[in-house]
Structure formats: C-alpha cells, structure tokens
C-alpha cells in the first residue's frame, strides 16, 4: 500500500481503479514541484537577466556564462549536484524535495532569462526614443511603456516552460521525491505490474498537459494587449 491506500490485484480493472487515488496523491506533489520550481525559475531568471544586462562586463559576463552553463547541462546532473554536492560542501542537509525544485528552478531560470531578454528586445526601439522625446523618466518608461508591451510576448513562452517543468518533474524520482513516476515504480516494484501504473501516469500527464496548455492559452487571451503588434 501507499499513502495508506491498498491496491486490489484481483483483476486488471480493479487494480487500475484502486491505484488511481494513489497516483492522484502523488500528482499533488508533482504539481507542487512544478509551481515552486517555476516560481524559482522566474525569479532566478529575472536576476540573471538583469545582471546580464548590466553594462559592466565584470558583472554581465559571469551572468552570461552562468545562463549558458545552466542551459547546456542536464537537469539530472544539476539535481545530483544540488542533492549531493551542496550538503557535502556546506554541511547542510537538503531535503529531496527542496533539492528537486532548486534544480528545476536553476535549469529553467536560464530559459526564463532568455525569454525576458527576447521579450524586452521585441519592443520596438522607437518606443524608447519616443519616450525620451517626451521626457519620460527611465523608470516610468520602463514600467509604463516598455514592460506592458513586453509582457504579452513573454507570457506564452513562460507558459510553455511551465508545462515543460511539469514534464521534467519525474526526474526527481532519482532522489526519491514521491511524485507520480516514483509512485508508479513503487507500485510496479511491489506488484510486478508496471504496465498499468506507468500507462496511467502517462495518461494522467496527457490530461495535465492539456489542462495546463488550456490555462496558459486562457491567461494569454485575457492579457490586456490591445493594439500591441505581436509579430
């Protein structure tokens, strides 16, 4: 049993139905990891993007390097690094879940940084010029002119990464975070029936992806972006 729920191996159908509640419990962990990982990625990405944009090269080059490094190395290794290396170096034990979302956050911060940069760059240069001609202060220009035009371009891309993070959560199974794949493996290890648990997890993922994509598109639709050329 798992989460206190027993499974019923009398028939395939009974088995399937009995493990669904278990997988749903695990799904909550999946969703938690997705959201927290995503928030971390957005924040770290923002910091990195800001640092990269700083004119001083001593600041911007390391930032650029870090972004490139995070983007070009596998999530799995980053996860192992956070989970094994940090405790050994700092002496602080890091719980598996924390290590997991940290790794997710790091991996995707690089993508988010790139998204922020692209979104800002897509705002036509003429906007800044017009703002300066009208004597707007730099901070006003940024928050009221540039940002509102950058956000609609950024949201769909970020939304896609949110869905990608969700699909990467199973990697956390190697540090035994109890998300859906881990639950499926445990059930499979104990009942020798991997087919049904794994297939169910696949199906659940399909549904989750559909729902998530739907929500992203909904948010994108409701964004105020009248008159902003988005191509």
């Amino acid at each position: 049993m798992l989460y206190g729920i027993h499974w019923d191996t009398s028939s395939n159908l009974a088995f399937t139905l009995s493990i669904i509640p278990i997988l749903l419990e695990a799904m909550i962990v999946t969703l938690e990891a997705t959201v927290i990982g995503f928030l971390l990625a957005m924040v770290i990405g923002l910091i990195l993007a800001a640092l990269k944009g700083v004119p001083t090269r001593i600041v911007s080059w390391p930032a650029t390097f870090i972004i490139e490094f995070l983007r070009d190395t596998p999530l799995l290794i980053q996860l192992f690094f956070v989970f094994y290396v940090l405790p050994q170096v700092t002496g602080i034990l890091i719980p598996a879940f924390v290590a997991g979302v940290t790794a997710l956050g790091l991996q995707y911060s690089a993508y988010c940084a790139e998204v922020y940069r692209a979104g800002l760059e897509a705002v036509p240069k003429g906007q800044r010029e017009a703002a300066r001609a009208l004597s707007f202060s730099p901070s006003y220009t940024f928050t009221r002119i540039i940002l509102p035009q950058a956000v609609p371009r950024v949201v769909p891309a970020l939304g896609n990464y949110l869905v990608s993070i969700m699909k990467d959560v199973p990697v956390l199974n190697v540090v035994t975070v109890l998300e859906m794949l881990t639950a499926a493996r445990i059930i499979g290890d104990r009942t020798f029936n991997y087919l049904i648990p794994l297939s169910l997890v696949g199906a659940l993922y399909l549904i989750l992806t559909l729902v998530a994509s739907f929500m992203v598109r909904y948010v994108d639709m409701r964004l105020p972006k009248r008159g902003i050329p988005l191509k």
């Binding site: 969700m166 699909k167 990467d168 990697v171 991997y194 696949g202 399909l206 992806t209």
Partner: peptide
C-alpha cells in the same frame, strides 16, 4: 502523445511496461 507526456515516463514505459 509524445509531446504531452514526460520523456522519463516514456523511457520507463518502453523499458518496464
């Protein structure tokens, strides 16, 4: 199907299921 599900799940499915 292959975009909507996790790669690791797909891999495990092919290997175990």
């Amino acid at each position: 199907i292959f975009r909507g599900t996790s790669l690791l799940v797909q891999m495990f499915w092919l290997f175990y299921a």
